[in-house]
């Protein structure tokens, strides 16, 4: 039986740890929602309540719609490859014995590196004239895009960097989920005549589905909040092609000091996050086995 806590215990164990959470998360959240309903510019001492104007302006603003579009593209195009590749790598690694740990170490290494530092490195790897990527593509006679300075490829460069950094993380999660599946299940499927493809499709994928859902939520939240790599690789450009909602928020709030509109963007990001999390919970009832 758990112990019924008295007031003094609640004070020490619950209230004190909650203080920073309240000061730096809960209260700011409430203030943000309020600010998004004002026209505050950070500098003026006064501001007015403007209702939903900020939101309505955003919805009619092409920059916002483009950013929303970019965000959705960026999120889908990072989350899905990260999960798929992480799963495939984990399945392959699971077959190895002595070398498994070493290879996991290599694949996970990008995750611990700072996004800022590695984005600087990648910005040079993408350099059209002296970067190694195009030099290698050139060797094979493949097209050599301008990557970061071409508005059609810039977002893909940012996506590549993001997947590169996150795939080892997903791989480790899947590896762990795989080792927890009882070996007997695969043997049973083998005995019953299931081929490799059938075993992966009918046993493996359903059994790691809770992990897939978990990664899906975490990676989606991360993707919606991606900033560092965009800030270094492209600063939202060229011509807004990599300006995600979060980057738009940064520009509005900390460059244009349009606090009301900026916070409205973050509230929208919050709503999108909550909606996606909620949606995946609903879908999980259908597809995820617990």
């Amino acid at each position: 039986m758990d112990k019924q806590a008295n007031f003094k215990q609640l004070f020490v164990f619950v209230l004190i740890p909650l203080i920073p959470l309240v000061i730096f998360w809960i209260i700011p959240l409430i203030i943000s929602v309020w600010l998004s309903l004002t026209n505050w510019d950070y500098i003026s001492p006064t501001y007015e309540y403007v209702g939903l104007d900020n939101y309505l302006n955003l919805i009619n603003n092409d920059a916002f719609l483009d950013a929303l579009n970019n965000t959705l593209l960026f999120t889908v195009a990072t989350v899905i490859p990260t999960i798929v590749l992480g799963f495939v790598f984990a399945v392959m690694l699971n077959q190895l014995r002595k070398t498994k740990g070493f290879l996991q170490g290599l694949m996970f290494a990008p995750w611990i590196t700072p996004m800022v530092g590695m984005s600087i490195v990648w910005s040079w790897m993408f350099n059209p004239s002296v970067g190694p990527i195009n030099q290698v593509l050139g060797l094979f006679g493949l097209p050599e895009p301008n990557w970061l300075s071409d508005s059609s490829t810039a977002i893909w460069a940012v996506i590549i960097v993001t997947v590169w950094k996150g795939v080892g993380w997903a791989m480790l999660f899947f590896s762990d989920a795989l080792t927890k599946i009882p070996k007997g299940l695969f043997e049973a499927a083998d005995v019953e005549g299931a081929g490799l493809g059938q075993r992966i499709r009918m046993i493996l994928i359903p059994l790691v589905s809770p992990m897939t859902l978990f990664l899906f939520i975490i990676l989606t939240l991360d993707a919606l909040q991606a900033y560092d790599q965009i800030s270094i690789l492209t600063q939202g450009g060229p011509s807004g092609s990599t300006r995600t909602l979060l980057y738009l928020y940064y520009e509005m709030t900390f460059q244009q000091f349009n606090i009301g509109a900026g916070t409205a963007v973050t509230v929208l990001i919050l709503i999108i996050s909550a909606f996606l999390a909620f949606l995946s919970m609903i879908l999980s009832k259908k597809f995820v086995f617990y």
């Binding site: 009882p182 007997g184 299940l185 049973a188 499927a189 005995v191 046993i203 359903p206 059994l207 589905s209």
Partner: peptide
């Protein structure tokens, strides 16, 4: 056909 010690039923 084989019956396993821990049954090896597919939980999903």
């Amino acid at each position: 056909a084989m019956v396993f010690q821990n049954y090896a039923l597919y939980p999903h």
